[in-house]
Simulated scan of single mutants.
Amino acid sequence: MSVAYCCCTLKIVDESHPSSGISVNFFAENFEKLPRVESAGDIIQLLRVVIKSHRSWVNVVFDKKLSSFALYEGRCDSKFAPYQVSPKFHPRVQDKKFIERLRKWTVGHQPETGTQPETASSDSLSLKEIKQGNQSNLTCKVIHICEVKQGEWMLFVWDGTDAPPVNIHKKLEEEFDKPLILQLEASPLSRDILCTFPSVGTILRMTADRCNEKLGLHLLKAGKWVQFRNINFEVRSGIWCGILLPKSRFSYLPDDDNLVLHSQRTYNERLKHKWGRMPLSTFPWPSYVTETNHDHKDVSFLTLMEVLSSREATAKFRCVVRVVATLPDRPENFRSSSCGTYRIRLTLEDPTARIHAYLYAEDAVVKVSTQKA
């Protein structure tokens, strides 16, 4: 009987191989038993590994029956406790001295990887630049991870920018039988999860077609900045979606990466600015003559994500949205033929979310305004 193994390869450097490094091949029964390096420059301790040479190449093989490993943060101010160990790992007294020396050495010898700031910033798109059809790289922060089906994972990623709005090719009369979906996942996320999402900027759903196990998406950690390479973008029911391919790859980025710092700084500036929550894409901006029924004209605009995560059971919100669907589909059907009452369902969206807004009875008599968002 054949047994399938998961594998990964790490390139490691130390004082004896500062430039070329050595490749280490790992084999395990599942992804959970493979080393999961959180940041470039972290330290891995290997015990009882096999060193092999082939022609002029030297590599290291991790034998799951004999070998063991431990992963430590590479920062000098970090604790000496490893954040991941293999089952057979046993710490030694001299380990602390070796880890301390390697941390001091890495300060002046940063590893040459694809997670360096100049590499991550040079060839990656932001969410405001995504287009359909072309394979691209994307640098973003993983906000949430969930299993949508058995063995199929969906990532929610963000970089603080607004994805461009898309044209929705759907007839109005189709809304009754085939309503426009509010999210790509089968059921909406809980409010507790939505409260952890940034209030400004598009949250992109990212999934993989038949290659989840190979990519190991479930091993990603929420809150980490990641660079994805060789991914596609599609529009599904008017919602942007990132598609991971069998050849897609990802790597963690350090918190001091130039693009990471720029994204976080831009996001913080948007939150402070009076108009920071306004869409930065081609969504319509309100004119100075726009009138609403809101009591305070100087109230700041909010995003739909802030509406969804609001703690108020009943509240008024001022939002800039676009209407992407209505039910009933025609104005002459807004009033019920049986009781004469108005009842309308609007599907609204902005760069952060898509929601249903219901107008009923006297609420539907007055002019529809942004407070109904």
Rank of each mutant, 00 (worst) to 15 (best):
Y5E: 13
C7F: 11
V13P: 01
S19T: 14
S20V: 11
S23L: 11
V24A: 03
L34H: 00
R36E: 10
V37K: 03
V49A: 03
K52V: 13
S53V: 12
H54S: 11
R55P: 04
L71F: 07
Y72R: 01
F80T: 08
A81K: 05
P87A: 05
R92I: 04
L102V: 08
P111F: 05
S121D: 12
S122W: 07
S124K: 03
L125R: 06
L125T: 00
T139W: 00
M154H: 09
V157Q: 01
D162N: 06
L182N: 05
S199R: 10
N212L: 08
A222W: 00
V226N: 04
R229L: 10
N230V: 14
W240S: 04
I243S: 00
Y252H: 14
Y252F: 13
L253N: 02
P254Y: 01
D256F: 13
F283H: 07
S287Y: 01
S287G: 14
E291Q: 15
H294E: 12
H296R: 10
L304T: 03
V307P: 00
L327V: 08
P328C: 02
F334Q: 05
G340K: 02
Y342V: 12
T347Y: 03
E349M: 06
L359H: 01
E362G: 04
D363R: 12
Q371G: 07
